[in-house]
């Protein structure tokens, strides 16, 4: 086995595409040949790093966005929508108004109101700050830190 042959086949060796005997012979050569084993390390490094560089997650809600574009086969969803539509149509004007007012009120109370009264704070925030100060004295993750608060 010479170095030139090996260099051309090292890529397939890294990919695990060699039969048992060839693998064994290559291994034996690599043990003795500094040049080739350096080459191997480089290939392995390229392999590992490329994998890390290539693999990423798609933007969030990939499926939800996809679902909106899918041809209309999602039958169950459609039926549900119809049911809701029918109820809405059947409602008297007063009922519709009541529902709209209700939704507006919920929106106001949950989103807008807390922002208007900016002086209303939650104690969690202070407790987290306290734990941060405590944590720096005790070092990493020793108390399970701020997460304890969010859990309760």
């Amino acid at each position: 086995m010479n170095c030139d042959w090996l260099k051309e086949n090292l890529s397939a060796y890294v990919d695990g595409e060699m039969n048992f005997i060839t693998r064994w012979r290559i291994k034996r050569h690599l043990k003795e040949c500094l040049e080739c084993s350096k080459e191997l390390r480089q290939l392995e490094k390229i392999h590992k790093l490329s994998k890390l560089a290539i693999l990423v997650s798609p933007e969030s809600h990939f499926y939800d966005r996809l679902k909106a574009k899918l041809p209309k086969v999602e039958t169950i969803e459609h039926k549900k929508n119809r049911v809701f539509e029918n109820i809405w149509i059947a409602l008297p004007q007063g009922g519709k108004a009541a529902i709209l007012v209700g939704i507006a009120l919920i929106l106001f109370l949950s989103v807008i109101y807390p922002r208007l009264s900016s002086t209303s704070l939650n104690i969690d925030r202070f407790e987290k700050e306290y734990l941060l100060s405590q944590e720096t004295l005790t070092c990493v993750g020793e108390p399970a830190t701020s997460l304890i608060l969010t859990s309760e």
Binding site: I54, L55, V56, S57, P58, E59, F62, Y63, R65, L66, K69, L70, P71
Partner: peptide
């Protein structure tokens, strides 16, 4: 989705295009 998106992004190089194309592929 992650693998398809990764392949597309590596092939195309643009994040917005990659997202659109990945969706196109699954359609």
């Amino acid at each position: 989705q992650s693998k398809v998106y990764s392949i597309v992004l590596a092939m195309i190089g643009d994040k917005n295009d990659a997202d659109d194309l990945s969706q196109e592929i699954f359609i």
